Amino acid sequence: MEDELYNKQITSRKDFVEFLKLLHKYYTSKPENWENNALESFLEALSAYAVDIPGAHKNTKQDRNPDIADWQVFADILRGAIAYE
Rank of each mutant, 00 (worst) to 15 (best):
G55V: 03
K61Q: 12
D63T: 10
I68M: 12
I53M: 07
F19K: 06
F74V: 13
S12H: 01
P54F: 01
E18R: 07
A81K: 00
G55W: 01
Y27M: 06
I68V: 12
I10Y: 07
W71D: 11
N59H: 09
A69W: 15
I82Q: 02
R79Q: 01
L46D: 13
N37K: 13
E40Q: 05
D63N: 14
D67W: 03
W34L: 11
G55S: 05
K14M: 04
N59A: 11
E18V: 06
I53N: 09
L46I: 06
D67C: 08
K21W: 10
Y6T: 10
V51W: 05
A45H: 03
D76A: 04
D76Q: 01
L43Q: 06
I82D: 04
H24N: 13
A69Q: 15
V73A: 01
G80E: 09
T60R: 05
D15R: 08
N36F: 12
A56Q: 00
N36V: 15
E44G: 03
A50D: 03
A38Q: 12
N36H: 09
L22Q: 06
D67E: 09
A38L: 10
S12C: 02
S29V: 00
F74Q: 11
E40L: 12
F19T: 03
E18D: 09
Y84R: 06
Y84N: 06
I77F: 04
F16Y: 15
E44S: 12
